[in-house]
């Protein structure tokens, strides 16, 4: 994470979530996601698909920072994310966590097996999907630039399978 943080001259705090703690807490299936929390620690806006390059996103965030009434409006509309009770999703999360632990102790093949089982249980989970790709093809992810063209081609290939 450090190279991206430094390259952006970031003044914000960057936290490292190597165990997918936030994914589990907020039941996330993909990233990037934004979560807005006010001064009192209240969830103001549940996880939402965020693109900070979009003008409307920045306008909304600026309004939130400057207009206390808007914070109250958002608070009134918020629906806290509920953790999934779907047994398949629960098992997928458990297998994903197990895979992370196995990878950490050097058991890459066993980790991949767990993640593939996890993905089969939660097919739309892009966090699991990309984790598999990144460990199988580190050159497409960790050589300075992420190869999104490769990801697109890979996705097409997998669809055909």
């Amino acid at each position: 994470m450090r190279p991206w943080h430094d390259k952006a001259n970031a003044e914000f705090v960057t936290l490292v979530d190597s165990e997918n703690i936030l994914g589990n807490l907020f039941n996330l299936k993909a990233i990037p996601y934004g979560i807005m929390i006010d001064e009192a620690g209240r969830l103001v806006k549940s996880p939402f698909s965020i693109n900070v390059a979009k003008k409307e996103t920045l306008t909304m965030l600026e309004k939130w920072l400057t207009d206390p009434a808007y914070n109250a409006t958002l608070l009134g509309n918020v629906k806290p994310a509920s953790k999934s009770l779907n047994p398949k999703v629960i098992e997928a999360n458990a297998r994903f966590q197990l895979g992370l632990t196995l990878l950490e102790i050097g058991k890459k093949a066993e980790a991949m097996t767990e993640w593939r089982k996890a993905l089969a249980l939660d097919l739309k989970n892009w966090i699991i999907h990309k984790q598999i790709w990144a460990v199988e093809n580190p050159d497409k992810f960790y050589d300075g630039n992420v190869d999104y063209g490769w990801q697109k081609a890979q996705l097409e290939a997998e669809k055909e399978e």
Binding site: M1, W4, D17, L22, G23, F26, L28, I31, P32, Y33, G34, I35, M36, I37, D38, E39, P47, I50, V52, L61, W64, L65, N71, I127, K130, W133, A134, F141, Y142, V146
Partner: peptide, 10 residues
């Protein structure tokens, strides 16, 4: 006010 922006390098 805190924006939690969750992303990955991939």
């Amino acid at each position: 006010k805190t924006l939690l922006y969750i992303w990955g390098s991939w």
